[in-house]
């Protein structure tokens, strides 16, 4: 496991084609690698370096900066409990401690069966729904300890599998730009003033539908 599969290479090439410069695709491609393997292996980074035309060290440089990229395998379900200020005020820390007890692990580690990784995270933009957590980046709002227990039971029994995909899968809908409808990349050094500005300047600015 580790280099991208042929199907994922196809997706990667499509993603790269959307950017004026290939390196811009690096973060989306790292997500793709993580979607494939659940984490980002060294071989995957070497493969991405080939695809983007940079060195593996540059890929590592970017990868290692971002919290979401895991360079070691994590649990099937990554449980991220927010303890930042809005959640702290209404029980986020207690929720985290409850889950530590319940799972028998400290935040930052994985259960021995490899099902859950627990993390103590920063604000996830659900402050009015505190305390909140995410499982594989799917939100759960106003979480009581009882609700958290029920959620863990469901996850372990596979009852949430359709709603919450395995770790690494973010959006299950990919952007598709049909070739015939693409406006095309705006590449530095190869672009002129856009046509709609030129026509407007020439006094033909009454375009709109039906023109």
């Amino acid at each position: 496991m580790a280099r991208l599969s042929p199907a994922n290479v196809g997706i990667a090439e499509e993603i790269i084609s959307r950017y004026p410069r290939p390196k811009s695709a690096l973060i989306p491609l790292l997500h793709l690698a993580q979607e494939q393997d659940g984490y980002i292996a060294d071989d995957a980074m070497e493969h991405l370096a080939e695809l983007v035309g940079i060195t593996p060290a540059e890929v590592l440089g970017t990868c290692s900066f971002y919290e979401m990229f895991k360079r070691e395998p994590v649990g099937q379900y990554l449980v991220n409990v927010c303890t930042n200020i809005s959640c702290l005020l209404v029980g986020g820390e207690e929720l985290l401690h409850h889950l530590e007890q319940r799972l028998g692990i400290h935040a930052g580690s994985t259960t021995p069966d490899g099902v859950f990784t627990l993390e103590d995270v920063e604000c996830i933009a659900a402050c009015t729904e505190a305390p909140c957590l995410q499982v594989n980046y799917r939100y759960h709002h106003q979480v009581t300890p009882e609700a958290a227990d029920a959620l863990l039971d469901d996850l372990r029994a596979g009852r949430r599998a359709t709603e919450i995909p395995k770790h690494g899968v973010l959006a299950r809908v990919r952007q598709q730009i049909p070739a015939e409808q693409r406006a095309g990349n705006a590449v530095p050094g190869q672009s002129e003033e856009p046509v709609w500005l030129r026509t407007a300047a020439a006094g033909n600015g009454d375009g709109g539908q039906g023109s």
Binding site: R18, G184, T199, G207, Q209
Partner: peptide
Amino acid sequence: GRDILGSGFSVD
């Protein structure tokens, strides 16, 4: 995308 609503305005 290309030629949005027939206006000549194009952007991805």
